[in-house]
Amino acid sequence: MLPAGSLYPILIMLRDRGLLEASWEGEPSPGRPPRHLYRLAEDGLRWAAEVAVEPSLARTTVRPQLREA
């Protein structure tokens, strides 16, 4: 289980590295604030497929992909 406050920094890091795409919800439900929506980007899909075959790659392949903002 992740400690409280861990999920959004992880999502932001993955977005900044080009593995996730993020957008705001178009039309939120009445009485609810808009939500951020996330989905795997093309590079994220490729990385997830590689990690599914060889899980040890998860620790070694994400860090070098940091992109300039």
Rank of each mutant, 00 (worst) to 15 (best):
A52Y: 00
A48F: 13
P3S: 09
R67A: 09
S23Q: 07
P9H: 03
L45D: 06
S29F: 05
G5V: 03
L19T: 11
E50W: 02
A4D: 13
Y38Q: 08
A49L: 07
E21V: 12
A58W: 04
Q65P: 05
R17K: 15
R46E: 14
L7P: 04
I12A: 15
L19A: 08
G18W: 04
P9K: 02
E54M: 08
G26R: 09
E68I: 03
A22I: 10
L57Y: 09
R63S: 12
L14Q: 05
R63E: 13
G26Y: 04
S56Y: 03
R59K: 12
R15M: 01
V51N: 05
A49P: 03
A41K: 10
P9L: 02
L11R: 14
P34F: 02
E42R: 06
L11H: 09
T61G: 13
R46V: 14
G31F: 02
H36P: 01
A52G: 02
M1R: 09
P33T: 06
H36C: 01
L45N: 06
A48Y: 09
P55L: 05
A58D: 00
S56Q: 07
A69R: 14
R15C: 05
S6C: 15
G26N: 04
V53M: 03
P3G: 14
I12M: 09
G5E: 11
G18R: 04
V51W: 08
W24E: 06
T60K: 11
G44L: 07
G5K: 10
I12C: 09
M1D: 00
R32S: 11
A41S: 15
G26E: 10
L45T: 09
L20W: 11
R67V: 14
R59V: 12
A52D: 12
P64R: 06
P30K: 14
S29C: 06
V62Q: 03
G44N: 01
G44E: 08
E50P: 02
T60H: 08
R15I: 03
G44Y: 01
W47Y: 07
A48T: 08
L20N: 12
A41E: 09
E21Q: 09
P9W: 03
E50V: 05
P33L: 06
M1P: 06
L37V: 15
Y38C: 11
R17H: 12
A41R: 06
Q65N: 13
E25T: 01
M1Y: 03
L7E: 14
R17F: 14
A58N: 00
R32A: 13
D43E: 14
G31S: 01
R15T: 15
D43C: 09
W24A: 00
S6I: 10
T61Y: 05
L19K: 10
E25V: 00
A41F: 05
P33S: 07
D16R: 13
I12H: 10
L45C: 12
Y38A: 10
S56L: 11
R17I: 03
P55G: 05
P33Y: 03
P28A: 07
L45H: 11
L45W: 13
R46I: 11
E42C: 00
S56I: 04
E21H: 09
A58L: 12
I12R: 13
